[in-house]
Design a protein around this nucleic acid. Sequence first.
DNA 1: TCCTGAAATGAATGAACGTTCATTCATTTC
DNA 2: GAAATGAATGAACGTTCATTCATTTCAGGA
Lengths: 195, 195
Amino acid sequence: MPDPNPTDRRNHILDSAAVVFAAKGFHPTTIRDIAKHAGIADGTIYNYFESKPALLLAVFQRMRDTIIQAAPPPPPAGDVRATLRAMLTHPLTALRDDNFALFRVVVSEMLVNAELRALYHQHIIQPALDGAEIYLRQALPTLDAARAQLAVRAISGMVMGLTIQYTFDDPTLRGQWDSLPEHLADLLLDGLLPR
Amino acid sequence: MPDPNPTDRRNHILDSAAVVFAAKGFHPTTIRDIAKHAGIADGTIYNYFESKPALLLAVFQRMRDTIIQAAPPPPPAGDVRATLRAMLTHPLTALRDDNFALFRVVVSEMLVNAELRALYHQHIIQPALDGAEIYLRQALPTLDAARAQLAVRAISGMVMGLTIQYTFDDPTLRGQWDSLPEHLADLLLDGLLPR
DNA sequence: TCCTGAAATGAATGAACGTTCATTCATTTC
DNA sequence: GAAATGAATGAACGTTCATTCATTTCAGGA
């Protein structure tokens, strides 16, 4: 399988690693599994990546870049409901399907690996919180700083928790996934009490 | 360290396993670590538990029982805000501190281990969802079934996600943890829009 | 005091796996 | 077309561990 362009080969290895990690998890997959899937020799992987954890890290970073690049532009300012829906829609759809199994593996490892956790926080969580807070306060100027901070944390926690719960094959959740952003936005804006 | 009462010894092993798993995570801890911590021989552990994964499972089940047993009685029916606060307070405090590191390890492994995941769903998530739905609809009869289902999933997702985010040493979250149930209950009941 | 068997012990086992490195060989250079 | 290059190869290495099991310990019954 020779394609001696180093960038292509690197990406090819990342493709295989993503597939195998997603299918088997981090610890159960061996470097040999990935090499076999990529159709190359074990050692070759070490020409491109330091170590097995570094490989997972690289897979994660590429996933992050893909997701961020696909982020839609902010909706017209002022419309809170549209803003909130947009904030919810992108992560909830990006993390489904293809990226979903991989997300699970990355989160699993992150919970237990401080280095990966720091990167996750620095590159995903913190920017998401900051961006969300700005969006939210722009769209809803009546909101004070403290409540905005809490709200974005509640929302991002909700997204992460719901994505994990998606794993459980809960039919209620599976069937409604696409309309989830809409309903969650309503819940968050209007509350449960009748108005 | 001999107290040949089988139940005590079993619990002693579970105590040590909980401490070591919580400190090092599942894969990096060895049976020898646990045996050493318990002051017994490696082989003894296999008189009480099938395997290393079975040991984690047993630790998890004991944690579950402890948490469930410590659950407070339902608050006086009718007061929605109190109900919701109670629903949030128990998991958010139970999962902090002592149980917290262990929770992280169990969730990490659950995300990647189908057997553990099924048990988690069956014993923790599903009962929590069912119970919460009943509480919520009792306290808030105006809520229709579909919105109640969604709300309890959003809430439990939020609890799980926030607990994971607690890991990140986010000062905003750390500082407010104790008042979180109160603020979240307000957010969920009143919504973000001014009334 | 001796016997018995259940429990505990921890050295031994062997499979698994991340990583290395001597060797190969297609490609490039001149 | 000879020499140099360096990427690719995959067998081998060394370590780590979960698990086993032959042996020892010892409580309590005879």
